[in-house]
Structures are given as structure tokens and as C-alpha cells.
Design a protein around this nucleic acid. Structure first.
Lengths: 188, 188
DNA sequence: AACAACATGTAATAAGTTACATGATTGG
DNA sequence: CCAATCATGTAACTTATTACATGTTGTT
């Protein structure tokens, strides 16, 4: 239900870390992306990879070291790096922008990432504040009939997700601030 | 990133509870569906509503009580009810099938819903068991470079989500089993 | 010898977004 | 009277799924 055009950015983000084949990307998506409730199929990955090369955002090496001769390893170009960094830096509009961008957080400054997390946390806190009403609505049998019990269970899970995210944001911000202090210690 | 064809089923599920307009559906999606990380736009809802009517899955009443004269209230037909019930009952293949079907759980027996939840819980428990390895991988700087810290933070959030789901499943199963006992008390 | 994993792709189709277009009613 | 909410829709476009098609390499 997303259709968010994340695939292209996720691929560029990954490639910014290290060169990869389409197969590698798919494997990563299967193992890691699912924790963020997403997926990417080959039918999506390969065309995007071709597009990236065509647009000068990536270069391709056929049969790189440690890979099969038919494999195509993609490497992000300077232009590609600029493009993905610009996306990470851009305003977070969609629900999962922050979480997804976080995967490639090193592309922007620690301060910028902290800013994103603070905003995200605030947003979730605000949403949590109005969620009690939804929970009451969900349990209202005049609205949901026999589904009222089920709807309130789902709403409770949603509240749990959001509470976790708030707590997680707090921890993440603390961690990043520690990291920042260490960085400035190093430059001093 | 989903493109899962959930929209049609969600709309039918909602309509099975009570007749609604496209606007009502959109509002519900905006308020409630987002807790399951989904969304539905008007550009999606209205065409689906027309399609449901065309296919005899829903009937429409223009300008119902309490609504504006131009409003179109959709009501699920017997055929529509059968279609949505068949979907709820069908095997859960996609990541979020169980959670979404849960919203309209009253369409199937309590036992069937318990079965789905038990399977879902088991699946998540199995996934959690292999997640420690991913967490170690995520923190590996030789793989993720400067993103290692970020990747491990995201993986930790993922683990938290899954743990919550396991705990939530347990509670939900307990609740439904209590409900079942009450039901059988009533029929005795 | 068989099977899992590695490896790449395409075409048809389906699904979803975005922007546009319009207008009435209600509450402050 | 202005803004928010109610209310419906379409068209162009983009994005994603599914099923197909093919072949190699490493492990048991």
C-alpha cells in the first residue's frame, strides 16, 4: 500500500556503503528490509540498476573479484552520492522516511540526523496523545459491531509500536549525542 | 513498497461492519490504517468503490440519512460478504495479512482467528531467533562502514517490533480463548 | 546426481500516487 | 466571511508484482 518510490533510494543508499550486485541487494532487502515492513523484488531491482547506470548515478563492473563472471557489481558515482545524500537530507514527509533514511545516516551530519529523530519523536508523541480516543472508538460496538474487540486489539498494537518508537528515538538521540561529543573531542 | 492489493479488501472489510461513503473510508484509513503503516488515497478508493458496485459486491445509496445529498453510501451485498470472508479465511502469505485480517476477525470463527495468530506468533519467534546474527552483521563496520551504528540501531528497532508482536499475539490468543469459552457457555 | 544458492533479466499486468477539478455545508 | 470539513471524481503517470525464461557454481 506504499508505492513510495523508496526502492531507488534504498538501492542508492546501499550502494553508497559498498558496491553490490542486484542479487546482493535483493538478499539484503529480504533479510533486513522486512524489519521495516518492506520488500523489493528482482523485477524492481534490475530495472532500477540499469536506470542508475544510464543516468550516470552508478557504474557497473562485470565479474568483479570474488563474484561470478556473469555478475554485475554496481558502484555509486559522485553524482549518485550527491543524489542519495540530497534525499536523506530532504524533508521527511512520508511515514517511514526517517527510519529508512536512518539506515544511511552517515551520509549527513550527526546533528542533522538528531534533528530528524527529534522531530519524529515529537510527531509520534503527539499522535500517541490522541490515540486514547481512537482506542475508545475501536472498542465501540455501535461503530465496529462484532469487530470492536478486534479493532481495539489492533489499535493497542499500534499504540505499542508508537511507544516503542518514542523510546527508541530517545535512546538513539542519546547515542548520537555521545557520538557527537566523541567526534568533537577528536577534532579538538 | 507494498502494492499488495490490500485496498480492496480493507474497503470490503470496513463495509462489512457498516455502510460508508468514500470519504468515511478515507478518514478511517488516515486515522487507523496508519498504525499498520498503510494509507489509501481517494484516487484509489473511489475507483474501487465503483468496481465493487459494478461487480455486484456492494450497492450504493445516494444521499442517505445524516449525510449530504451528493454522498454515496456503499453497503456490502451477500456476494461481497462472501468475497471478503473468503479472503480473511485464505492462507496468510504476505507479511501483514494476519494483522489486517484481524481488523475484521469477526467474519471468521474465533478458532480460525486463534489459529492464524498462533501461526503468526510462531513465525515471528522463528525470525527473532535468527535476528541476533543480523544484529551482529549490522554492527559490522567492514560491511556497512560508517553506517554500521545506524544499521544496528534500525535492526534493534526491528527486533523490538517483533518482540512486541509476539507478546501481543500471546495476549490476543488468551483474550480470544476467554471469548470462546464465554461463547460456548452461552450456547450450553 | 540433485539441490541450494548465485546470477540476470523481461513483459504483461496491476496497483497506487499526484495533481487537477468542483462544489456544498458547518462552525467560529 | 473564512476556514475546515464534507464530498466525489478523473487522467496521466509512476511504481511494483508476477510469472516467465535461462544458466552457472558449489555442496551433499
Amino acid at each position: 500500500m506504499a508505492k513510495t518510490n523508496y526502492a531507488k533510494y534504498v538501492i542508492m543508499g546501499l550502494l553508497s556503503g559498498c558496491p553490490m550486485t542486484g542479487y546482493d541487494i535483493r538478499k539484503w532487502a529480504d533479510e533486513c528490509l522486512k524489519y521495516l515492513l518492506m520488500d523489493m523484488s528482482y523485477g524492481q531491482i534490475y530495472p532500477i540498476l540499469n536506470q542508475l547506470e544510464r543516468d550516470g548515478l552508478a557504474t557497473v563492473a562485470v565479474g568483479s573479484a570474488g563474484k561470478r563472471p556473469e555478475s554485475k557489481t554496481y558502484r555509486l558515482t559522485e553524482k549518485g552520492l550527491e543524489t542519495i545524500t540530497a534525499w536523506i537530507r530532504s524533508p521527511d514527509t512520508k511515514e517511514y522516511d526517517v527510519l529508512l533514511k536512518m539506515c544511511f545516516g552517515s551520509l549527513i551530519s550527526t546533528d542533522e540526523m538528531i534533528g530528524k529523530l527529534k522531530a519524529y519523536r515529537q510527531k509520534r508523541e503527539a499522535e500517541l496523545a490522541i490515540m486514547d480516543r481512537y482506542l475508545a472508538d475501536a472498542g465501540d460496538e455501535t461503530v465496529y459491531g462484532p469487530n470492536a474487540l478486534y479493532m481495539s486489539m489492533i489499535t493497542m498494537l499500534g499504540i505499542t509500536y508508537f511507544k516503542d518508537e518514542v523510546a527508541w528515538c530517545k535512546d538513539a538521540i542519546t547515542l548520537l549525542e555521545k557520538k557527537k561529543r566523541k567526534e568533537s573531542d577528536g577534532t579538538r
